[in-house]
């Protein structure tokens, strides 16, 4: 990296140094609150409010034990919640991305009268704020379809016309059609072209979307709260904890829970970005 830096022109060196400093400042401004949240998680509640910005008098790592044991929804422990979160996040993301990818691909690459309408409808549904649909939705999911279980709930995520659709549609439009045409000439079916030629090329987009989708589902507490009462997720646990701590003030324990809940997704992202960024670049090109 240093070597590469030496090769640059003076102007570039200046720009890079400047950007590096800028990035560092920004990174610090992002990290600082988390470091502070971690330090706060080791205090007592009174100490937390006494000097909001001091080191803990005693480093109460026992707070984490407390959080772990107190962090419960009915009979589900934190581990159970993590399990539920993992299932919902990955299967939900998988379903969401696959369905969006299919619709986006068709709309982008098979233009006919229907696709234009679909695109417009997708935009329309994003603009219109929906109010007061909770009763209808709840009745449908719980009473009519009885989808209020960890498998059925995936149907809620299998939407093909939201944010994922719009982004993937953009990607698919720019995906080269020449490989596909070659495939068709060779007699490949539409199905094969999609799975074998297009999807690998779209992998960077799929991965980006999957990451965002994962985070969205991981942090969503409303769906599990409404439909998965017996399978609470971590986000729901945090949400409940947040309300509890407004009555029984215990901010440090709350921060413990937050930090414990961030860790899995942070670790996942760190692992992912390495493998994914590199593999997708290569994979996308090799086709």
């Amino acid at each position: 990296m240093i070597k590469a830096f030496k090769k640059l022109t003076l102007a570039q060196k200046i720009v890079f140094t400047f950007v590096f400093i800028l990035f560092s400042v920004y990174a610090i401004s992002i990290i600082a609150p988390f470091v502070w949240a971690f330090l706060s998680s080791l205090k007592t509640d009174d100490e937390y409010y006494e000097k909001v910005f001091a080191l803990p008098k005693q480093w109460l790592f026992s707070n984490y034990v407390t959080a772990f044991t107190e962090f419960k929804i009915k009979k589900t422990s934190m581990l159970g919640m993590i399990g539920n979160s993992l299932w919902l996040t990955f299967s939900g993301t998988f379903v969401a991305v696959m369905v969006s990818s299919a619709t986006a691909y068709i709309v982008a690459k098979y233009p006919f009268w229907g696709t234009k309408i679909i695109y417009r409808v997708a935009i329309f549904t994003m603009i219109i704020p929906i109010v007061g649909n909770l009763p209808a939705m709840y009745k449908l999911v719980v009473a009519d379809l009885q989808f209020n279980n960890p498998i059925g709930i995936l149907a809620l995520y299998a939407g093909g016309f939201g944010f994922n659709f719009i982004i993937l549609h953009g990607f698919y439009r720019s995906v080269s059609w020449s490989y596909a045409e070659a495939g068709f000439v060779d007699g490949a079916t539409d199905w094969k072209v999609y799975w074998r030629i297009i999807l690998p090329q779209a992998l960077p987009a799929i991965v980006s979307i999957s990451i965002l989708s994962c985070i969205g589902i991981w942090n969503d507490y409303m769906t599990p709260f409404l439909y998965l009462k017996d399978h609470p997720t971590l986000a729901l646990g945090i949400y409940q904890f947040d309300i509890i701590q407004t009555y029984r003030s215990n901010v440090p324990i709350y921060y413990c829970a937050i930090i414990m809940s961030i860790l899995p997704i942070l670790i996942l992202f760190c692992c992912f970005q390495e493998t994914i960024m590199e593999n997708t670049v290569a994979g996308g090109l090799k086709g």
Binding site: L86, V142, Q146, N148, N149, P150, Y227
Partner: peptide, 23 residues
């Protein structure tokens, strides 16, 4: 990675597959 994740999910779903909440 993908297979690992899916299998993880399946394990989780196995223990999660009880009937939904009471209505």
């Amino acid at each position: 990675i993908f297979c690992l994740i899916l299998s993880l999910g399946l394990v989780a779903s196995a223990c999660a597959c009880t009937p939904g909440n009471k209505t």
